[in-house]
Write a protein that binds this DNA or RNA. Structure first.
Lengths: 279, 279
DNA sequence: GGGCGGCGATACCGCACGGGTATCGGCCCA
DNA sequence: TGGGCCGATACCCGTGCGGTATCGCCGCCC
């Protein structure tokens, strides 16, 4: 299956074999066997190009999910076994720089519980929490709707907040009591920065490129960009930045999420604590 | 992994091997290899009994999910390939005897769409829709909250309705304009029937045993039981049965659900049609 | 148009892993 | 203390997977 996913992604047996660290002939035969076993033609080979059939597209989606599931099984088992003193730790993942206040309250409250499991914190980029939960690198996540997707996860809502525009402190708009989204999106000389997608490339278009929140804030302080962010980030603004409420921007909901089949006691405890802290 | 799940469920190498159709020694070695590969002790063998370690319990949960995922991959691919004329069909699963009116409307509306994919209908027992979606026997399901769980599924709400008590036509309560839950639950001589769990066994306690809706309705008509069910079932009541609203019973929400990673065009079409039909 | 090069399939070979049978070793129980 | 149960080990065998060499096909370019 790993083999098939590699070929389906590369659409090229040679490169796929290279990526898998095997030679090309065994790969060809493996795919052939898979096709015979499933009694399905997965790839159309036309001597110049390899294309996915409809069945192949189905298998690609499903096989990715299946591989993630077995990776998750291996990783979680390894973690459970290697945990010191039989105390199974939980890995909590969230976007770097987001919800830091809530996070601090949650970690403090959880640490204060009797017989609390250890919590390992894992910070990631935007939109990476879902894959991390699915492939077992993490057990629980803090997500921010509507930016993150909760597809396939169990969730509990924690809190909602409005958004603010982050501007250079000296900017004319920084003194306003509030702004509309339209006021901020088209500012000459203050474009929204671009973020790298999951594949590491930046979308085309104008705007400076930023890799994380620190870079973003620095760009704004330098007067090269502006941004719209949840209110709670006001507590971590550095000098040279101003925040102005944007009432018509969508409200942001922070939720705690976990893969539905892995509701271990430790995860359930953490979720309960999170709800208690925010209610 | 299949091997480990078998042993973990049987807690007995001999029986597990038998269930898997292999001999016991290869099974022992396979588990040993797995433990070495994961660097984890999964089972405690004490010459008289086999018990799961904490890591073993984690792997059992995760491995079940992973196995379901690969089963799903195989099944869906097989279906996609064997579909006649390259027209990928969708399997819609729902509880036998539930939502039949909505179902009819949905199927009619969908068949009337241009270029609609074929829909295979699959009826199942209570609470079996989740596993069916997860292991690929079905692609979309109609669920009824709060009876079914939507954990790990993407859903769209379709409709909500109150519940009614189903009583023998001649029963004294059958003439009332409405009832409370408490009026129905403790009726002498009219207990709630018991349903078999997923493992096929009946919970202990009083009440006749029923295997499906037909048996249930017959039991009620015979004056041996009563039941509380969603309003929509009134349209399919046979003679000898009466339905009385129960305003304080929880309202039932019918949702359409699908596994999040498998949002194929055909599934998306069906979901859209379902929303249109019920809005 | 013919030679060339790229690419997937096939042929053939060796090893290693998964499966089988026979047997051992520890433990409970009679 | 011996028998029976159960998992582990020993040993053997076949299949499957991986490797190298080579073929067949088809665009491309000189």
């Amino acid at each position: 299956m790993r083999y098939f996913v590699a070929v389906a992604e590369e659409l090229h047996f040679g490169r796929a074999a290279q990526r898998l660290g095997i030679a090309q002939p065994p790969l060809s035969r493996a795919i052939g066997r898979l096709e015979r076993r499933l009694k399905a033609v997965l790839l159309e080979r036309s001597s110049r190009a390899v294309t996915l059939t409809e069945a192949g597209a189905v298998l690609l989606r499903e096989a990715r999910a299946a591989l993630e599931a077995v990776e998750a099984a291996e990783r979680r088992t390894r973690r459970a076994a290697h945990a010191p003193a039989g105390q199974a730790g939980v890995v909590l993942v969230t976007k770097a720089g987001a919800s830091s206040e809530l996070l601090a309250k949650l970690l403090d409250a959880h640490a204060a519980e009797p017989d609390a499991a250890g919590v390992d914190l894992l910070l990631c980029g935007m939109g990476e929490q879902g894959p991390m939960l699915r492939d077992g690198r993490a057990d629980v996540a803090l997500l921010h709707l509507p930016f993150d997707t909760t597809a396939g996860l169990d969730t509990e809502e924690l809190c909602t907040e409005g958004q603010v525009a982050i501007l250079p402190a000296g900017h004319p708009l920084a003194g306003r009591p509030h702004l509309r989204t339209a006021d901020v999106t088209g500012l000459p000389g203050l474009p929204m920065p671009r973020w790298p997608g999951p594949d590491g490339t930046y979308p085309a278009g104008p705007g400076p490129r930023a890799r994380d929140h620190a870079q973003l804030l620095q760009l704004i302080a330098l007067g090269r960009a502006c941004w719209i962010a949840p209110e709670s980030c006001r507590t971590q603004l550095r000098a040279g930045l101003a925040a102005v409420p944007v009432p018509d921007a969508p409200t942001v909901t922070t939720v705690i999420a976990w893969p539905p089949h892995s509701r271990s006691r430790a995860v359930a405890d953490l979720v309960r604590t999170a709800i208690r802290v925010t209610s």
